[in-house]
Simulated scan of single mutants.
Amino acid sequence: MKRSSVIRRAVLAAAAVALVATGCTAQAAGPGGGGGTSKAPVTSAPAPSSTSPSSSAPAPAPSGSASGGSDAKPSSPAPTSSAKVLMKDGDENEQVRELQARLRQLDYFDRAPTGFYGSITAKGVSGFQKKRGLPATGSVDETTWQRLLGMTKKPTADELKPSTTNKLDTPDARCMKGRVLCISKESRTLAWMIDGQVVSSMDVRFGSENTPTREGTFAVGWKAKEWTSTIYHTPMPYAMFFSGGQAVHYSADFAARGYNGASHGCVNVRDKAKLSALFDQVKVGDKVVVHW
């Protein structure tokens, strides 16, 4: 009886170890990490030893040492600042436009305000912060904003939405070869480029949040000097279609209201003379790149 009991115990112990290993493997393989409580794939953890706690005996509570169990708090550096971020990369609103206008007064933003917080705005904010001994995060917190308000005046309507031509953005890498309509959402410009050289440029306007202009690499599918939208029934002179119903075209509304309005997804141009000359140069099949 004694020998039989010893054998039975050995068999049960081996089965228990096999079940634990199988359960861990299933968690790692399941969707989203399987069981959800493990912090790392099981394949990187040591295999259970014969001294591993059984399912019937609760494991001891983890200690505060670095070698604590999987429930131990992960060590992470304490945050350096609890300042609330007011504006950051990716934001698009009128406060960002005011930020850009104020930065421009101090020569930290060298183009017309667009209302979009991109890499150019972040670089300007970072430069302003460094000069004032503030953490150069590139994002605007309350301290940065108040310091900027104290050093600038309230922007005029012309400073917020100037009629001058926007400064070109650095061309996207996809624009450097061949014949390309290189369109930047950040600087709100269109550059007609041939083999990396800018032939002409102009201000542009894009779709609203509800009808956004698609980003990516396209080609001019067809052109129409005179065209009326079959959906919105509005004129689209000098239309160059590149993505379904989206096209580069002249907009009388853009010419009259500027950035107070938006398109239904097309790339609007307000300088009719420039676009007319561009229309004559662009061929069906030429590349179109729309980027931030």
Rank of each mutant, 00 (worst) to 15 (best):
D172V: 11
V180S: 01
A40H: 04
A66N: 09
Y232C: 00
Y250G: 08
D71G: 08
S276M: 01
Q95N: 15
R132L: 05
T144D: 12
S70N: 05
M193N: 07
P113A: 06
V20E: 04
Q197S: 10
T51K: 00
P41A: 04
A247M: 12
L275D: 00
S276L: 01
T25W: 05
K84P: 11
T211R: 13
T25R: 13
V180C: 02
S201L: 08
A112N: 10
Q100R: 11
T51A: 00
T25P: 01
D203L: 08
G258V: 02
K123I: 07
R179W: 02
E94I: 01
I7F: 15
A101V: 03
A239C: 08
D195E: 10
P31E: 15
S55F: 06
R9C: 05
G68T: 14
S119L: 12
A59V: 09
N268R: 10
S163C: 04
S65L: 01
A57H: 14
G258W: 08
T234N: 02
N260S: 14
S56A: 07
S81A: 14
R104Y: 06
E226G: 10
T228C: 02
D203K: 06
K287R: 11
A157D: 11
A21W: 00
A28P: 05
A59E: 04
G69I: 02
T189Q: 04
M202E: 14
A13K: 09
P155N: 00
G265D: 13
D280K: 11
D195I: 13
S56H: 05
G90H: 06
S251H: 13
P46W: 01
M1K: 06
S56Y: 03
T228A: 12
W292Q: 10
A16Q: 02
K123E: 00
P237Q: 02
G115N: 10
S229D: 15
M176V: 12
G32C: 12
A101D: 14
A224G: 12
D158Y: 04
P162V: 01
T164I: 05
M202R: 05
P41M: 08
T37G: 01
Q105I: 13
Y238S: 14
S76F: 04
S81H: 09
T230G: 10
S208I: 09
S200I: 03
V140Y: 03
